[in-house]
Amino acid sequence: MVRFVGVSLLYPTGTRALSDVNLHIRKGEFVFITGASGSGKSSLLHLVYRESEPTEGSVVVAGQDVAAMDRARVPFLRRQIGIVFQDFRLLPQLTVRENVGFALDVVGASRREKSRKVPVALELVGLTHKAESLPDQLSGGEQQRVCIARALVNSPPLLLADEPTGNLDPETSWDIVQLLSNIADRGTTVIVATHDKYIVDGMRKRVVALAQGVVVRDDVGGAYDYA
């Protein structure tokens, strides 16, 4: 689903964010990207959804060379990728239902499609009863569930989560990661960037550890501990 071949990313300031990263994530896999702040976790995710382009190497997502992709095709790449953020990025003036529907509105979905898909996504994250609430009326964990529902409403084959539990307490974090894991079990490829040791150790999934932009470990069923 996602393949990095000899990828390096150099910021214009000269900072080296990633060095010669090689990675292969198969369809339906659940992968943690771990590492301290500044180790390159976010940079790696950015390359997947073409927020930035690699200085060297190639990034292939769902059979498409993302680095060589024409700018005009980027929106269509992103329709195949759901993205979950640490800060949720919900629109405060829209209800939960409208926030999830927003992702369908902007890709030109019909009203019928919307009324069919939004409840399914809300049900999946367990928020059917909060559909008419505003984000401010929800807890952090609930807001993150809305964000996940919005990421999934287009049924993307790939879900990226950048520190999804960064703003949540440990218990809520655990629920969110369980939810992401369930999503992976349904066939969606899930990549989670996190520095939350508790979660990574509890899940025993594949762990790709980054340190200063280099992959230092890639274990299936691994724990967080890195050098």
């Binding site: 005009a72 993205i83 902007v106 890709v107």
Partner: peptide, 11 residues
């Protein structure tokens, strides 16, 4: 958010 969920620039 529009950009991240795949809205085209024209849209």
């Amino acid at each position: 958010i529009m950009q991240l969920v795949g809205a085209t620039n024209g849209f």
